[in-house]
């Protein structure tokens, strides 16, 4: 028994050592690579933040950048110096601006980031709250070729799942549209055009409220601390902190001044409604499945059966009885037939 045990321990030890010192894949090699990579990641993050400063019309100083990157001022200064040395930024009166090369670099990062978010939304089941964090990692890993291959696979999308435009390969980036929800006119019906994904906690809260792109809200009232809106049948009060992450655009031809535009969840059994649209927040295979089942604008849809446990609900869609979960129904915008509402 002993020699066998000895052989076994020896080979185990051999495996462990190999795992540590193996070239390129071993623990040591990976550690060295990650040190190298993390310096590049910090530099790239710095470029992105300088770019973001300008997008938001803030002044970009060493201090503000240190804050944005959550690094000590000393490190921020060092990063900026390195970027300046490489000709990516230039300094003037303690403020930093991107050079042309820097601008292009920043846009390439933004492009990779938003394309990856699009990919996660369309092709995987990764929850929305994780898109940003994962994309934050991938933007440093994707090479220029990877990014273009990804773009072509996704059919060259123009917007990311949060409503941000994706810069083109040649670096064109349309100006963001809309106004902050905090600045919307009271009494207006507005449409959500962008949901900021940072900080994640706020994004998750908005998601939990059922907010999605293209959803229409009516602004009921506003104070410094909060905004009161009508979403479907529901009156919601949003803290200023939360509302600050929502960008909206006034709707001129609001199709539901009377609140008959609701999600499918709000339609009661045997009440008939017409589909207006599938929320743009729902993308990829999930969206395609609903479309294939015949959930397209104008389709008549009637909840007919509620399962024993309350969810899912079966709907009559184009002659077939299809069960949909609450989460799916909540991303289908419908118009109640007003006569039926009265009855």
């Amino acid at each position: 028994m002993d020699p066998i045990f000895f052989l076994f321990s020896l080979s185990l030890a051999g495996l462990v050592i190999a795992g540590i010192v193996w070239p390129r894949r071993g623990v040591l090699a990976r550690m060295a690579a990650s040190r190298h990579r993390s310096e590049r990641v910090r530099l790239e993050d710095a470029i992105k933040q300088v770019h973001a400063c300008h997008q938001e019309d803030h002044s970009c100083t060493v201090d503000s950048l240190a804050g944005r990157l959550s690094v000590p001022t000393g490190m921020a200064a060092r990063l900026l110096t390195r970027l300046a040395d490489e000709g990516l930024i230039r300094a003037a009166d303690g403020e930093f601006t991107l050079t042309e090369a820097g601008e292009a670099y920043a846009l390439r990062l933004v492009r990779s980031h938003r394309l990856w978010e699009r990919y996660l939304a369309d092709r995987t089941g990764v929850p929305a709250s994780e898109w940003h964090v994962r994309a934050e990692r991938m933007e440093h890993i994707l090479s220029a070729d990877d990014t273009e291959a990804l773009a072509s696979r996704l059919g060259h999308p123009t917007y990311d799942p949060h409503g941000d435009p994706i810069p083109t390969a040649s670096g064109a980036l349309p100006a963001p549209i809309g106004v902050p929800l905090l600045a919307a006119t009271v009494g207006d019906t507005v449409e959500i055009v962008h949901l900021e994904d940072e900080p994640v906690e706020v994004y998750v809260e908005l998601e939990g409220l059922g907010f999605g792109l293209r959803q229409q809200l009516r602004v009921l009232g506003r104070s410094d601390a909060a905004v009161r809106v009508l979403a479907g049948d529901e009156e919601i009060t949003l803290d200023a902190v939360v509302a600050a992450n929502v960008t909206v655009q006034p709707v001129l031809d609001a199709d539901s001044p009377d609140g008959s535009r609701v999600t499918l969840v709000d339609v009661r059994p045997w009440e008939t409604a017409h589909v207006l649209e599938i929320s743009p927040a729902l993308q990829g295979v999930q969206r395609h499945r609903l479309l294939d089942l015949g959930v397209v604008p104008g389709t008549e849809i009637t909840p007919e059966l509620v399962s024993s446990s309350g969810d899912p609900v079966a709907y009559r869609i184009r002659g077939a009885l299809i069960a949909l979960r609450r989460s799916q129904a909540s991303s289908i915008m419908v118009q109640r037939a007003s006569s039926e509402r009265a009855g």
Partner: peptide, 14 residues
């Protein structure tokens, strides 16, 4: 399996 794509639909045939 967190990241795998997911779609739900269940047809109730007659």
């Amino acid at each position: 399996l967190r990241g795998e794509a997911t779609t739900f639909s269940l047809e109730l045939p007659p």
